Simulated scan of single mutants.
Amino acid sequence: MQTTEIRQVAAELVQLLGPTDWAIGGSFLLQSYGIEAQARDLDLVCTLERFEQFKTLLGRYAQLLPVSLHPIYRSQGFARFDKNGLVIELMAGIQVLKDQGLQAFEFQPEKTSWQQDLPLMQLSDWLELYQLFERPKRVAQLQRYLNEMPHTIKDE
């Protein structure tokens, strides 16, 4: 799917879900900063309180896909959708099973950064998530980018 099509779907999601309690992360976020050449999907993170409402709204917009239990991902809310070949994943209450037990990531909607009328998560939050998800290539890629950025941009 082309970047313009993914951006169009993202813009439609702003209309569908409203401007609060969710943000876009993953490969689309990385592409927005020029870190990744092409987004593969849309990863949405939302508050646990709004998860069921957003899941219902997305279910009217796109086809709900079956999800099987992951060996280590234990998010309190997770749903996957298909919109014309684009996979949209909605996550809330993100938790990962580690040796020490469950480790959680707390989504803070007030940290959302609006760019080109789209709600984007902070890169530092995705660095934390990629570490939690044990994605070493993404961690290294993001750390390189953040280390090269001027300090003022890193701490928005």
Rank of each mutant, 00 (worst) to 15 (best):
Q8I: 00
R7W: 07
M91H: 10
P71T: 01
D155S: 13
G26F: 01
V139P: 00
Y130P: 02
D82L: 13
P66F: 05
Y33S: 00
T3C: 04
Y33T: 08
R144P: 00
L57Q: 13
L30K: 05
L48A: 10
V45P: 01
L118K: 07
G34E: 05
L90E: 02
S32R: 12
G59T: 13
Q2I: 10
Q115H: 15
P66G: 03
R135I: 13
G25Y: 02
Y61C: 09
I24N: 02
F133D: 12
Q100G: 02
L64E: 15
Q31I: 05
V9A: 11
Q53E: 09
R60M: 05
Q63R: 14
S75E: 02
F28R: 08
V45N: 02
L146H: 00
L102G: 04
S124H: 02
I94W: 11
R7F: 10
L58F: 10
M1G: 09
E128V: 12
T112I: 02
W114M: 14
I88T: 06
K111M: 13
Q122A: 11
Q103H: 12
L69R: 15
F107W: 09
I35P: 00
N84H: 14
K137E: 15
R7A: 14
L48P: 04
A140C: 02
K98L: 02
L129N: 07
